[in-house]
């Protein structure tokens, strides 16, 4: 069995991209103190909207724009419920996932068996979305750690009462973050339908959104960690597919568990490090998942 390392790395980058987009978006949302478990729902919405737009316009680029808009649009349902109606974030995120899966199953029927336009290759034979995903890592790191709006976003995530007392618009910051997360999740989902699978099938994100959520924990809320996590996940996926293609004597169904098992393993390793480690670094944002409302 020959595995050419370079071609594997290129495949790895492609497999990592949907997770990279979705996890970077969720990272910003969680740094603002909001836990949105609806990543899977936003990704599948983006996967369908992006595919439909790319098919109708014959332009993959327009597809990704449409996916970002669709992801953002459904994330606003979550924003309205959690920020204005103060609903439980865990339950609302779950609802978003169930709703997204249902909605796309309903409206996706006409797109089954339809082809998408081919995505344009960029420099080094990698498409532009792969480049964009990798470029977002330093950009988001720079935004969060080196700019004033980034500082405000982190303040809102660490202690929303203090941020509110200082006069920062907690709710607005969180709504913007949720929208950004929705847009990136939508684009990540569209990458699966437009660039990886090249068609639309019901429930095609197959847990990618949940893996992205785990990668954010693995990354300890740091964009560079997200990149590492996404590559690790991409590597496991590619390796698993290679082993399948090479006809290893392990049933296909068991090999395809690898990404999910790998996610559990890294989640356990990183949680154990946080639990037994001495430093407080890499902890979750202090206000994560807590609802905020101002008495005045």
């Amino acid at each position: 069995m020959m595995i050419d390392p370079l071609s594997v790395f290129i495949l790895l980058l492609g497999a990592a991209t949907p997770i990279l987009f979705a996890a970077l978006g969720e990272l910003v949302v969680e740094r603002a103190g909001v836990l949105n478990l609806g990543v899977e729902g936003m990704m599948i919405t983006g996967a369908l909207a992006g595919f439909a737009a790319a098919h109708a316009s014959d332009s993959p680029a327009l597809g990704f724009v449409a996916a970002a808009i669709a992801g953002m649009a459904v994330s606003m349902t979550f924003a309205a419920l959690t920020q204005f109606l103060l609903s439980n974030q865990v339950a609302t995120g779950l609802a978003l996932t169930l709703f997204g899966l249902g909605l796309t199953a309903l409206f996706g029927k006409p797109y089954e068996g339809v082809k998408a336009p081919a995505i344009m290759p960029g420099p080094l034979g990698l498409n532009w979305m792969i480049w964009l995903g990798m470029a977002l890592v330093p950009l988001i790191w720079w935004f969060l750690t080196r700019t004033r709006p980034g500082l405000i976003l982190r303040a809102v995530g660490e202690n929303h009462d203090a941020a509110h007392a200082l006069g920062y618009p907690v709710r607005l910051v969180r709504i913007l973050a949720i929208g950004f997360g929705g847009a990136l999740a939508g684009m990540g989902g569209a990458y699966i339908s437009i660039a990886t699978v090249l068609q639309w099938t019901e429930g095609m994100t197959a847990g990618a959104g949940w893996i992205a959520l785990a990668i954010v924990v693995f990354a300890q809320w740091n964009p560079w960690g997200v990149l590492a996590g996404a590559w690790l996940f991409g590597g496991v996926t590619v390796l698993q597919l290679r082993l399948q293609a090479a006809g290893v004597a392990v049933p296909v169904q068991l090999l395809s568990m690898a990404p999910y098992l790998a996610t559990i393993i890294v989640l356990v390793l990183i949680s154990a490090r946080q639990k037994f480690g001495r430093s407080g670094a890499g902890a979750a944002p202090a206000s994560l998942g807590r609802p905020f409302y101002a008495l005045k």
Binding site: T77, A80, L81, L85, S87, N88, A91, T92, L94, A95, L98, F99, G100, L101, G102, L103, A105, L106, K109, E202
Partner: peptide, 17 residues
């Protein structure tokens, strides 16, 4: 067939709201 799923998702949204 997916109508039921949409209904169930919507129901949970409204309930939480």
């Amino acid at each position: 067939a997916a109508t039921v799923q949409v209904f169930q998702g919507m129901l949970l949204f409204f309930l939480l709201g």
